[in-house]
């Protein structure tokens, strides 16, 4: 179990680092082909497909999202040059020979127009084992304030 925890946390730290340092192509490669990235509005939502979310990205939308962040065409992505995120409080919810489900807390800070903002969130990952590594099958980012009004988020949570 300890070893699994080490492997899983190392994977999630790596993902966080890639997003903070904008290694988006590498980040896309962490995903299972059928993986889904979700940022729900309703904290209770489980059936994301049949619910309105902030983001519900399959592979093609993830790629388009990355293009938008890197193309320089979207003015809102230029005003948040840097994020700092800290995943922590890891707990493995289930694991078998194929998959691991892990939940953690994540604090992301952004600095937009000189305003420092933090978005705390619970993040649940479903990871598929891939040799010594993992692929992300599902990543659900439940923002603490998802049910209230947000401000523009010009990066990947």
């Amino acid at each position: 179990m300890n070893e699994l925890m080490n492997d899983v946390t190392a994977f999630i730290y790596k993902e966080a680092d890639m997003l903070d340092f904008k290694e988006y192509q590498e980040w896309l490669n962490l995903w299972d082909a059928d993986g889904i990235y979700v940022v729900p509005i309703d904290p209770e939502a489980e059936d994301f497909r049949n619910t309105l979310n902030y983001a519900y990205d399959k592979a093609d939308m993830r790629k388009l999202r990355v293009n938008r962040l890197t193309s320089g065409e979207a003015v809102s992505t230029q005003t948040t040059p840097k994020t700092v995120r800290a995943p922590t409080r890891f707990r493995i919810l289930s694991s078998d020979s194929d998959r691991v489900t892990v939940r953690c807390a994540q604090h992301i800070s952004e600095n937009r127009h000189g305003v420092l903002r933090t978005y705390p969130a619970d993040v649940t990952y479903t990871l598929r084992r891939d040799g010594d590594d993992f692929r992300i099958v599902e990543k659900v980012v439940r923002l603490l304030n998802s049910d209230n009004h947000l401000s523009s988020i010009g990066y990947i949570l």
């Binding site: 979310n53 519900y56 388009l64 979207a74 947000l150």
Partner: peptide
Amino acid sequence: FNQMRMRLHEHFQGPMGFGTPDDAEA
């Protein structure tokens, strides 16, 4: 039908859409 409507909405609208954040910036 409703799924497609929601996916199109998410694509452009809201704080993580591909349109709204740029409007808000302007």
